[in-house]
Amino acid sequence: MLKQFFPQHDFKALLFDFDGTVADTMPAHLGAWNKALAKYDLTLSREQHMAWAGRPTHRIVEMMNELHKTSIDPQQFLQEKEVHYLSSLHEVSTIKTVMEVIHHYHGKLPMAIVTGSRRKIVGLTMDQLNLHSYFDLLVCAEDYTQGKPAPDCFLMAASKFNIAPTDCLVFEDANLGIQAAHSAGMNCLKVTEESSLAHTR
């Protein structure tokens, strides 16, 4: 199935970003951001949300504080945003093209979720979508300090699988995640806005 993209490569592990890659959560997350930001008279555009995708929420709050000269408490905001996100969890679905890959390689290759989101939120979303059985490993925001575009999260997953980074294939929708994958020395397929898979450079 992956031979159409990498005819010369037999990958030994598949690493998936979560939001916007496995699960179509980005509209729910953006809605939660703006509901939580309303009390501060701020908004987050879709374009800015996509540009920052892959970074942990607390880091984005810090960046917004710098940008808008505000003093939003990242931890309090994180909790407020999560409440809003969970209220719209029923609207979230999986991304069909990526799920086809997951179904095809389930039981054949180890697979991991590697995300900038918190374990609790990822876990609850995976519960909603019945995804837990497909993945051998979850690497979430609490597990590392340097977020994407740093390669740390992908290198951690490869290390836990005891597989060389060059033998891992990453699936990502966000530019920061693609940068992180390439910095880790890994090949990467981009999940486009049309939910197709494409080579990255």
Rank of each mutant, 00 (worst) to 15 (best):
M111R: 03
K148N: 02
M126G: 06
L14R: 10
T94V: 01
R119P: 07
D24Y: 01
G185E: 02
L155N: 10
F11W: 09
K96A: 12
S133R: 15
H199F: 12
T192D: 02
L14V: 03
C140I: 11
K3V: 10
G31I: 05
T115D: 05
L37Q: 11
Q48Y: 10
F154I: 03
K160A: 14
E194C: 00
P149Y: 05
D17G: 01
A158S: 09
F11S: 11
K35T: 04
K148L: 03
G185Y: 00
S117M: 14
R118I: 12
T145I: 09
I72A: 09
G123Y: 12
N65W: 10
V139Q: 07
I95F: 02
D41E: 05
T115N: 05
L189D: 03
C140Q: 01
V92D: 11
G177P: 03
H103E: 11
F161G: 05
A141D: 14
V101F: 13
A51Q: 03
E82K: 04
K69H: 15
A180C: 00
D19C: 09
Q128R: 14
L138H: 07
N162E: 15
S93M: 13
C153R: 09
I95V: 06
G185M: 10
M99I: 12
D24Q: 02
K160D: 14
L124N: 12
D19K: 10
L42G: 04
E193F: 00
S133N: 15
V92N: 09
S117I: 10
P165H: 08
N187D: 14
A36C: 02
V139G: 01
T43L: 07
P7I: 02
V139I: 13
C188P: 04
I60R: 00
G54I: 01
F135Y: 00
M186D: 06
T21I: 01
T192H: 06
H106D: 14
F161M: 08
P110F: 09
V114E: 03
R118L: 12
P7A: 03
V114S: 03
S159N: 15
L44F: 15
I102W: 11
A181V: 06
L14T: 10
D136R: 07
H104G: 11
K96L: 14
L155R: 06
Q76H: 14
K148E: 02
D127S: 07
V92E: 08
Q179D: 08
C168P: 00
P110T: 11
A13Y: 08
L78A: 09
F11K: 09
F135S: 01
C168N: 04
P27G: 08
T94H: 04
D167R: 02
G31M: 08
L14E: 07
V139P: 06
M63K: 12
Q146S: 12
G54F: 00
D41C: 04
S159F: 06
H84K: 00
R201H: 07
S117C: 13
I102Y: 11
I163R: 04
I178V: 04
A158Q: 03
Y144H: 10
S195E: 07
G107D: 11
T43N: 08
L176N: 01
Q146F: 12
A112I: 12
M26P: 04
S88T: 15
H68M: 01
H182Y: 06
D17F: 03
P165T: 06
H132I: 04
H103W: 10
A53S: 11
L155A: 13
A174G: 00
I113L: 00
V98N: 00
C140S: 15
V114H: 06
K3C: 12
